[in-house]
Design a protein around this nucleic acid. Structure first.
Length: 271
DNA sequence: GGAGTTGTTTAGGA
DNA sequence: TTCCTAAACAACTC
């Protein structure tokens, strides 16, 4: 379930390859994950290069390579989006790619693997001194100072009629927020997910702003290091199946579709 | 066998 | 035009 913190967890799985040489690049060339890039160019460029650095921002990851076949003074920038079921992991060599492994970087001692069962993920590649354009234009991180209350307010006004839940899933403003985080934010801020974004009053807006940061920080703390779960006091632990109860009131949680996505909330707690 | 699934893009309707 | 919803993408599990 790759949202903000899961993406950060997966990014770190490839850190064993930092400053190691890519001895071989295996690609499943016809895979849908290469729909926006030439797998040949990617594997040719990265073979014999060194993994230097990695970044994550929202649900996007970027890996920087240099040396090897790459032109002098230029970097290879490998972008990965995990979609619904993508994962990054490392395995000891020798490693035989499985059915859903689309990209494998064989390093000195490990294989760095991108696996994706449902193929909603994608691979991007850019050659140049600077990161690719789409990376430069990504929206501000929710835990950065650039994400402020005023902008939040303005954005909710712009989508005044949409349910808050649907608005929170918009990656252009809430990078990294996925289905469970959107529900958790509504739960922690005590706002019902169907509430039209334009109908949230000033006090609750402040609460919402704080809880967005609280949920992002908590998710990173609990999930990004070892893929652990958030605490029992979070909706997260109770939301996945019918019959779960609210950790605040003990009442039955409600599950329904909002904004096209399964949404879980506690009616009396979130009023 | 049918329904549901953690994400994003697009087509088409309001 | 603008904004929103539903469908499509694909392959698994329950």
């Amino acid at each position: 379930m790759p949202e903000l913190a899961e993406v950060e967890y997966f990014r770190k799985q490839w850190s064993v390859g930092l400053d190691r040489k890519v001895s071989q690049v295996l690609v499943k060339a016809k895979s849908r994950v290469f729909r926006e890039v030439s797998p040949k160019k990617l594997s040719g460029s990265l073979t014999n290069s060194f993994l230097r650095e990695s970044f994550s921002s929202g649900k996007q990851m970027l890996f920087r390579f240099s040396g090897g076949n790459l032109p002098d003074q230029q970097f290879g920038w490998l972008g990965i989006h995990l979609g619904m079921t993508g994962k990054l992991f490392h395995e000891d060599l020798p490693y035989a790619p499985g059915k859903h492994d689309h990209l494998v970087l064989k390093m000195t001692e490990d294989a760095l693997v991108f696996q994706d069962m449902r193929l909603f993920g994608k691979v991007l590649f850019h050659l140049g001194k600077e990161p690719p354009e789409y990376w430069a234009q990504r929206p501000p991180d929710l835990l950065s100072a650039e994400f402020n209350l005023k902008d939040l307010e303005a954005f909710l006004q712009r989508r005044a009629k949409s349910p808050l839940k649907a608005v929170l899933l918009d990656q252009r403003r809430f990078p990294g927020v996925g289905n469970w985080m959107a529900d958790e934010i509504c739960f922690q801020a005590r706002i019902l997910p169907h509430t039209p974004a334009g109908k949230i009053e000033v006090e609750r807006m402040k609460q919402l702003y704080q809880k967005i940061q609280y949920v992002c920080r908590g998710a990173l703390k609990y999930v990004s290091n070892d893929y652990g779960d958030p605490p029992k006091s979070w909706l997260f632990q109770h939301r996945w199946k019918d019959g779960g109860t609210c950790p605040k009131t003990g009442e039955l949680l409600v599950r329904e579709k909002i904004g096209g996505r399964t949404t879980c909330f506690s009616p009396s707690w979130q009023e």
